[in-house]
Every structure is written in C-alpha cells, then in structure tokens.
Design a protein around this nucleic acid. Sequence first.
DNA 1: CATCAACCCTGAGAGC
DNA 2: TGCTCTCAGGGTTGAT
Length: 279
Amino acid sequence: MPELPEVETIARALREGGRSGRPLTGLRIQQAHVYWPRSIQAPSPDAFPTRIAGQVINEIGRRGKFIVMQLSRDALLVHLRMSGDLRVEEAEPRTGKLPLARQHDRVEICFEGGVFLFFEDTRKFGRMWLVPQADEVLEVLGPEPFSPDLDASKFFEHLQKRKRQIKPLLMDQHFLAGMGNIYTDEALHLAGIHPLTLSNQLELSAAGRLLGAIREVLAEGIRQNGASIDWVYRGGSFQNNFRVYQRTGEKCPVCGQTIERILVGQRSTHFCPFCQPLR
DNA sequence: CATCAACCCTGAGAGC
DNA sequence: TGCTCTCAGGGTTGAT
C-alpha cells in the first residue's frame, strides 16, 4: 500500500526514468483511454481523454501520497490508494508492436513516440484528477513531514491543539501528509510512544522525538525505494527493516518483548508494550 | 471535535 | 480440487 516513500519512488522513476520506462517529462500526450470510469475523479470520465490530449508533461513531483504532474494547461494528480501503480511501457523498437493493456489497467495514456503510461489498480480504490490548479485538490493536506517550516515546537503546538489518539492523527492527511499504516507504526516504535497516547498528552520532548522518528523512517524508506508488501507494490526493500509492522508475536528488536497487535481507529496496529508504554 | 461503522473493491487464505 | 467465507486497507461519508 503506497505511502510517502513508495509514492516518492514511483514519482522519481516517472520523472527520471528507471524501472522499465524512460522519463515522461517533456512528452506530449496523444490520447487516453478510460477502462474503469470511477478511477477518474475529475473531470467526467468522458471529458478526460479529450481534455488531456495534446498536453505536455512539464514536471513530475509528489505531495503527500499524491503524484503530481504539471501539464501544459492542467495538473494531473494520481492517488494510488491501496493497490494502485503506474507502469511505463514502450513500443517494440524493431516491429513497432504496441503494448497491450492488462487485466487490472484502469486508465491508459498514450504519448507521441510510442510511450505508454498505464494506471493499474487491482482494487479500484485509486483515483486520478485532471484539474486547472493542483491546489484545488491538494490544499486540504497537512504539512509535508520534511518541510523546513515544520519544527519540533510547531509540531508540538499542532499536537496540543487536538485531543486524539496519536496513531489515527498521524495518519490523518489533513494533519500531516504522507503517513500510512506501516510508517506510522514504525515511527511510533522508534519514538517509544504508545499508539493510543492522546496527542495533547505528549510533551515537547516527545513531540520532537516523534517528528525525528517520522523523518528517520520515511528517509530510510525512500532510501530503500519503499516497502514491498503483499503482491502489490514491488521493487522496494524496506520490508526487511520493519521493527514492529506485521511482526505480531515476534520479539521486539530493541528489548525482546513480544510484539502485540491491536485495533486502533479500525486499523491493525503493531507495537511493543515495553518500549511503548501507555501512561 | 472525536470516535465509529459502513462503503468502495479484490485476491488471498482459511475452512470445509 | 474447488467452493464459500472472511478480511485488509486509505479515504470519504454519515451517524452518534
């Protein structure tokens, strides 16, 4: 399930080439096909292909868990949700044979020069937006975890203003952009904070520790090209560094206590009862 | 404002 | 082997 490091890895590959594809920046879109209309959030699925045709991709980046592509006139945003991925393929140089859409491909974008971008999404939760201003969609997001504007004291202030369980709060994209189930569990363990701790109970020192832990696990995740879980996202190796995530019943790498699994805000949550006591 | 449940979906894994 | 059942998981929506 793509979180910030996975989305960052995918955005980089689209921007700079890598994996199978070559860079998409600078390419002009010829046409598009929508195979699953609900994958298009805006404009209407019918209007999408007409409106995107002819536009050139000028920039590719990331904001929270969104992939952000700046086109000639519009912005193309992609949220991969649970099972989404973007795949670049090229026509056979010799025969000119074109790539075929696969079973789980929901949207296909064709570029001049025989390059294709497929939005594959087994579970159909992912969405695309084609809008004049990216901010229409992105403005509701909380700060980027790596934003220089976000320091320990500001983070502490934000936590103080709310009275929520820390884990669901960290996963709330309006509060902080980019965290998902994996990196939240990992960051809370690294910071030694129980997932049910109320946000306004955290002291300044704990807030600073938490922000540092969030940045550390995200940076390590990016360094390892994300985590490969289940059959979805592939190519990363951060799953080999999980401290607690999906390690229920195993020993805590720090203290040796048995890692527990509880439900927090409808999400499975892994933590060490010794390293992360609830006070 | 905080919490909770349902919903959107599919494939994997369990149980039979 | 093959069927049915349950469940995970990000985000949105509506109820409490």
